[in-house]
């Protein structure tokens, strides 16, 4: 049963549009799926390999700009950007990884944070290539209907899920976890830590970049403040994984549901005004304090907590 759970979930998700959701709900669902891809990608690097990146906006933005520049400079459909971004982001991740992967712990975190910001300011200033702060706008999006976008992003998500699962359950996955638990020990056992960290970073970056290219197609407009955002992209990504469950398969999905779906719901509570952010912030604090490994990671604990609540 448990073995088939992912397939059942996928089947359920793929018939979701057939029950007649409003375009508003479809938009939210698409965002949830997109964010869970980014979450899964981050999880591979952060959750399994232990390299906590604060700069996933860099990959997201490079992916989005690959599609955008393809459209604005060559007049090609930005959908080709989804494919091209695989190449571009791989090269980009490799170069970036060469620089930042020498660092450890908080230093790595801060260096990645800086890399995201550097990319943002570069995109702002390189006006001839990126269009600067005016951004890139697609004149007409491919479809009005959301269903195609949904199936495309769902397909990417499914591929991401199985790829991450395969990787983690392979020999590579064990190396990743070994690096996370004790890098020095892993090295002394003969694991080429730099190599495996680079692999994790590249795959993680590429998956995030694909999501970025999709974002360009879906939203039809990008500018540096939107796609290279520190808070709205990089940190939200980490929150999705941390809230959902670090180093779990389903954590990013659960996290995305909370960070997008629940956030939208809290935002929509009538009469709350600016207070919705306070409420949501408090919710995050509570989750981190009581479920430090996230909802999926601490599922048993969560069950116990709720169970206690019922008997008393």
């Amino acid at each position: 049963m448990k073995k088939y759970f992912p397939l059942i979930a996928l089947a359920l998700l793929s018939i979701l549009p057939l029950i007649g959701l409003s375009t508003y709900m479809m938009h939210i669902v698409i965002l949830v799926v997109m964010w869970s891809i980014i979450g899964m990608a981050w999880n591979l690097l952060g959750g399994y390999c232990g390299q906590v990146s604060f700069g996933h906006a860099a990959y997201f933005g490079v992916g989005a700009y690959t599609a955008g520049i393809l459209y604005s400079k060559l007049g090609a459909s930005p959908w080709w950007g989804v494919l091209l971004s695989i190449v571009v982001v791989t090269i980009f991740s490799f170069i970036l990884g060469y620089v930042v992967l020498r660092l450890r712990g908080p230093f790595f975190a801060l260096a990645t944070l800086a890399s995201g910001e550097v990319m943002r300011v570069t995109a702002e200033n390189w006006v001839g290539f990126t269009g600067g702060t005016l951004g890139i706008m697609v004149h007409e999006r491919t479809w009005v209907e959301k269903i195609w976008y949904y199936y495309i992003i769902l397909l990417i998500a499914a591929v991401t899920y199985f790829l991450v699962k395969k990787l983690v359950e392979s020999k590579l996955g064990y190396y990743f976890v070994a690096i996370r638990e004790d890098q020095d020990a892993a090295e002394s056992l003969g694991i080429n830590t730099t190599l495996y960290k680079t692999i994790a970073l590249c795959i993680s970056g590429v998956l995030t970049g694909i999501a970025g290219a999709f974002y360009m197609n879906y939203m039809g407009y990008i500018d540096p403040h939107v796609v290279f955002a520190l808070h709205d992209i990089s940190i939200i990504t980490i929150m999705i994984v941390m809230v959902g469950g670090v180093a779990t398969y389903w954590g990013p999905f659960v996290g995305a549901v909370i960070m997008v779906f629940l956030a939208e719901w809290v935002r929509s509570i009538p009469g709350l005004g600016a207070a919705h952010q306070t409420l949501f912030g408090v919710l995050l604090i509570v989750i981190i304090i009581f479920l430090p490994n996230g909802i999926v990671g601490d599922y048993k604990k969560l069950k116990r907590l709720v169970g206690l609540g019922r008997t008393s």
Partner: peptide, 29 residues
Amino acid sequence: VLKVESILPENQVILTVGIGMVLASLATM
């Protein structure tokens, strides 16, 4: 948060993000 065992110690970072969010939105309110 520091006391409990967790896979990534960085979850305290997210905690500070939450604190910052609450402070900023309280100020807005």
